[in-house]
């Protein structure tokens, strides 16, 4: 681990130059993209209001930060208040899940510092009927699966072993969450949504962002993430 950690300062240092450039341009961090501020591998400028995740490891962390912002907001709304007649098992455990997601979100916020993307202003009740238990549980399972598959889809793109390991510490907890939610929906379905090798499957950032786009108030651009 000691050896692995050596890479982190290098990444941080490299990012300083980009950050300095952005701050000169009045755009500290990887926030809202101005249409005229294009980058090398973009063919089209981003529309106003698009959130650019950024590049390198910080782009990957911002991607995870965006997903954790969604899940934390979702579970916060899920639990305040619960749908009518929520069983004890749910009122007992779902608040834990909410708190785990908040912990993940806040850790990523601090790891990113001023490179963090904006705080999304979610309006989830437009997409989910929070009084409808099956709908809420289905959304929970879907968001958990996207976080798991989303991380599996970028795990090999990290330059820093430390950042990679930090996210990996969260992903098995998401595995614990999805098993719990799956069993609440359909008993003993805790590990049925896996592939033929009985593994969770990866998804690309583009696939995950498209699948969750109805929840996010902004368009998200993953164009500059490491490939």
């Amino acid at each position: 681990m000691k050896e692995d950690l050596k890479e982190t300062p290098a990444i941080a240092q490299k990012d300083v130059s980009r950050r300095q450039f952005l701050s000169y341009a009045g755009l500290a961090g990887a926030g809202l993209v101005i249409a005229s501020c294009n980058n090398d591998d973009d063919d089209q400028p981003e529309p106003d209001g698009t959130v650019d995740l950024g590049s390198e490891d910080f782009g990957l962390l911002n991607y995870m930060f965006a997903l954790k912002q969604l899940s934390a907001a979702f579970y916060t709304r899920f639990t305040t208040p619960f749908y009518p007649d929520a069983p004890t098992a749910e009122t007992e455990f779902v608040p834990d899940i909410r708190d785990h997601e908040i912990a993940h979100r806040e850790l990523l916020r601090n790891m990113l510092g001023d490179r963090a993307i904006i705080d999304f202003e979610f309006v989830l009740q437009n997409s989910i009927d929070f009084n409808n238990r099956p709908a809420v549980l289905a959304a929970a399972k879907d968001i958990e699966q996207k976080m798991i598959s989303g991380f599996l889809g970028i795990a090999n793109r990290f330059a820093s072993a430390q950042y990679f390991e930090q996210i990996a510490k969260m992903t098995t907890v998401d595995g614990r969450h999805i098993a719990y939610i799956s069993d609440v929906i359909s008993y003993n379905s805790f590990a049925l949504d896996v592939n033929t090798d009985r593994k969770d499957s990866p998804m690309t950032p583009e696939e995950v962002i498209a699948a969750l786009s109805n929840y996010f108030p902004n368009t998200i651009s993953a164009k500059r993430l490491p490939k």
Binding site: I148, L152, A155, N156, A168, T171, T172, V173, D174, G175, R176, H177, I178, A179, Y180, S182, D183, F190, A191, V194, N195, D197, R198, K199, D200, S201, P202
Partner: peptide, 16 residues
């Protein structure tokens, strides 16, 4: 990828 895909499923078993 081989280990990570099993890793999250192991989280499912522990939870169950």
């Amino acid at each position: 990828s081989a280990v990570l895909g099993i890793h999250t499923v192991s989280g499912r078993y522990a939870s169950k």
